[in-house]
Write a protein that binds this DNA or RNA. Sequence first.
DNA 1: ATGAAAGCGCTAACAA
DNA 2: TTGTTAGCGCTTTCAT
Lengths: 337, 337
Amino acid sequence: MSEITIKYLAQKLNLATSTVSRALNDSHEISETTKRKVTELAKALNFQPNAYAKGLRQQKTKTIGIIVPDRVNPFFNLVIEGAESICRANGYSLIAYNSYEDVEQEKKIVYGLLGGKVDAVIMSLADEEKEAQHLEWLRERNIPVIFFDRVAQHLEGFKFTTNDQESSYLGTKHLLEKGCKKVIYLGLSHTSSVGAARREGFIQAHQELGKALDPACLMEMGHNDKENQEILEKMFFKLTRPDGVLAAAEKLGLAAYRALIKTRIKVPDQVRVVSFTNMQMADLLNPPLSTIAQPAFDMGSACALELIKGLKDKKVDLSEEKRIIIPSVFTPRESSR
Amino acid sequence: MSEITIKYLAQKLNLATSTVSRALNDSHEISETTKRKVTELAKALNFQPNAYAKGLRQQKTKTIGIIVPDRVNPFFNLVIEGAESICRANGYSLIAYNSYEDVEQEKKIVYGLLGGKVDAVIMSLADEEKEAQHLEWLRERNIPVIFFDRVAQHLEGFKFTTNDQESSYLGTKHLLEKGCKKVIYLGLSHTSSVGAARREGFIQAHQELGKALDPACLMEMGHNDKENQEILEKMFFKLTRPDGVLAAAEKLGLAAYRALIKTRIKVPDQVRVVSFTNMQMADLLNPPLSTIAQPAFDMGSACALELIKGLKDKKVDLSEEKRIIIPSVFTPRESSR
DNA sequence: ATGAAAGCGCTAACAA
DNA sequence: TTGTTAGCGCTTTCAT
């Protein structure tokens, strides 16, 4: 590794290692002269303190871990980016882990995370319901954890989510008010808290506007994009086809849109589509789609900010239940043609 | 941190810490009985060795760093994913860093990386031409580095790239052979090796097929999506508009496609578009676009594989010049309508 | 204002 | 086969 150490600097300057250490850490009990000499030599030799020695000695690493179920997903990707920006601004490093939607993998990461590699963790869970032994284990070890998006159901703590139900409600209301007679809901999983909330908002809008809702309109889709598209194509070919779509995930919105193109149905003139998405993708989506954009980056930075605040300020108890809502942004769009 | 240590295990079992350490590392000089006792207790207490102590002692961390210019970009994102899968399979951790296309940031990361945080580095450079002091510094410190995509021009080493020129040549040839009379090239920067190669392939195709090439057709675009789209819209409105587009970046392909939709020009009937992209996005792009897809995931895994091989096998010299090509996949598409 | 020395948790010589 | 001991590079009492 880097062969130049504090000891080496101390020898060169005829000082004790402790003095050099203090000088580098800008201790008040070191003379300005010595400080200058030390920092100058350190800069000249491009000295980098050994992070592992520091971590071992201080029992903290100035590193935060973030675990997401799918790092490739732009939403999580942007959350990581947002968290990283805050960490960097506060002198922390961020290490991102991918649980691949698998609780076992998540456990491995959590247990491996320890060994003192991180001071705290930001998590979006692979499974909100399942056993949370590994989370309790973190708590026992006094590793602060903050949850976002897919939050722990059976454990108290800070939880950052979006206003899923409200957004879904607004999007659905928009469709109904624009005159849609038959609106379908496309969801991925209503067992997750996120899925359940979006589904609830959809139902709520129908109830409040006094519109009948055929249970068959609540559609649960799979993860295979091709299959989803085929199912939707068949549906749009029928005469009884819907004239409104609320897609609870970006990929479902895209699948619906592509199915509509394939079946030569005009969007939004014949069928209106509202899709959940995230800020970055919102502008890339073709203009005829209305979007409910999650401020992913902001969510990441908010989590990191709160976590670092809790790390510094002992008065903040990160293990007490607290729910913070980062609101989505609904953008209705008309055709640009 | 984790309060349970080797010392604690040793006390519980009336053994020396060294014995416990050896048992946990499956040393041959420890009896099966002792091994079993130790591993059982370790598992029961969910003991995790302190990574920092280990790293400090062994002077290696079983961790690899990867630095990319833009982590959010799906291409780099997938490279990271590919590298991570290989690392994980080989017992290594991967830490991803974002240089934000900024050499200064990149330097900070490189220098900070040291302090013994990683054993080796995979990089795609923020700037291929600029001063490579930080890279030479890594070399002096015997930290192996492998480059991909945006590779070092003034430093020897292992370099993974795609067959940019050939792909670009094939894509352009496809357009010309399909009867396009005026093909434009949309590039982001021809100072990068990648940009230059793609531009070269475009020119080469024109030459080999004996087609005249108006220099005005070699367009250099900016990073602002909106501006790009507006420029292209204006161009497509003109009577002298091109009937073929080779987009050297995914975002440029999208900009062109959206401009074509806006100007109501049919793709691919009136204008054909070939766009560079990556495997994951290829299927998401609307079918009328032909794609040159880079196997980003494979590139990441190839880099990691070679690096780990070099780390294990002292016979492999990672500092000698070696260029490895991971070929792109060209998929011509006709309209699906 | 500076130095000496202990120790974070682990591994690896060297001893037994 | 197991134990003793030193030391990785750093910070932090405690002395001076």
